[in-house]
Design a protein around this nucleic acid. Structure first.
Length: 292
DNA sequence: AGGATAGCCTGCGGGC
DNA sequence: TGCCCGCAGGCTATCC
């Protein structure tokens, strides 16, 4: 369940291995795992050129928006990784990566220090994927512009602004529950099921509250909670529930301090009352006492 | 057009 | 022990 903190952690741990590295080769082991986007935004699945896999390029940036990670080469090409729900990107020194099943893409790199390294993208459930763009401009125009402000790096006022639009007194008050809204990447980018539940708990807001009934105070508190929950999780290396690993194979520890996620029917860490389950299309856990 | 829903996909845990 | 079922969820397509 990689969400923003896990992807950010992956970015931070990949950075020292990739910055300045030259892509010697790229292999797509599953043909339909990569989508090539053209200059006009048209998409094409199927056979992928070496160019699309960044071969021959020198990686000069790793950027992230929400849960998407973009690798850029000096000549402008971009490859975007979505981890989906079970995706992992592992880096290893040398020309051979540890073998595992479901390895869909493999890159051989020559790093700045002249040693060779291998980067493998594996994704058992295949909810993730690789997207190739001719330039950052096309990525921004066709995809990232549709995402809301990044939950971690956008100014707090923008997160608040996004939530305000769908709340009481906003431009288009929404009949959706706030839980569903938090999962909407067009509203705030990067929040998934784990951190939506955690943010709502911290803000003291019930997940089934309707957006249009939230007050401006609720919205301000929630925006701050989202920012804090995501930031804390990055510091802890993300949540490793089962699959998640950073580029070096290390797991995170944020799951140890979850207040509600995965704790249905257990005692609330704040008030001791029994946490409740609900299903807003996704499993949701909350405290009926602490959250109103 | 906003909002709800189905479906993609594999691994795993529970029940029998 | 082994099999079947249900569940996990990010995202897109589709329907109402």
């Amino acid at each position: 369940m990689p969400e923003l903190p896990e992807v950010e952690r992956l970015r931070l741990t990949l950075l020292p291995h990739l910055l300045g590295a030259t892509v010697l080769s790229g292999t797509l082991k599953r043909r339909d795992y990569c989508t090539v986007v053209g200059e006009d935004g048209a998409v094409q699945k199927g056979p992928v050129s070496e160019e699309a896999l960044l071969v021959g390029g020198a990686i000069n940036a790793l950027s992230r928006k929400g849960k998407q990670l973009a690798m850029t080469t000096a000549d402008g090409r971009v490859a975007v990784i979505h981890l989906g729900m079970s995706g992992q990107v592992l880096f290893s020194v040398g020309t051979r990566a540890p073998r595992a099943n479901h390895q869909h893409v493999e890159w051989l790199l020559r790093r700045g220090d002249e040693t060779e390294g291998t980067m493998v993208f594996r994704d058992p459930r295949r909810f993730g994927g690789l997207w190739s763009y001719p330039s950052m401009e096309v990525l921004e125009r066709t995809a990232w512009s549709k995402l809301g402000p990044d939950g971690l790096t956008s100014p707090l006022s923008q997160l608040e602004g996004s939530l305000r639009r769908v709340a009481q007194g906003g431009e288009r008050p929404s009949a959706r529950s706030i839980k569903m809204a938090l999962l909407d990447q067009a509203l705030i980018a990067g929040v998934g099921n784990i951190y939506a539940d955690e943010s709502l708990f911290l803000a003291g807001i019930r997940p089934d509250r309707l957006c249009r009934e939230l007050t401006l105070e609720d919205v301000a508190r929630l925006a701050r909670a989202v920012r804090q929950v995501l930031g804390d999780a990055v510091t802890k290396g993300g949540s490793t529930l089962k699959d998640y690993r950073d580029a070096n194979g290390a797991g995170g520890t944020a799951q140890q301090t979850h207040m509600v996620y995965g704790r249905g029917a257990e005692a609330c860490r704040m008030c001791g009352s029994r946490l409740k389950w609900s299903f807003q299309q996704r499993t949701t856990v909350f405290c009926g006492v602490c959250q109103r």
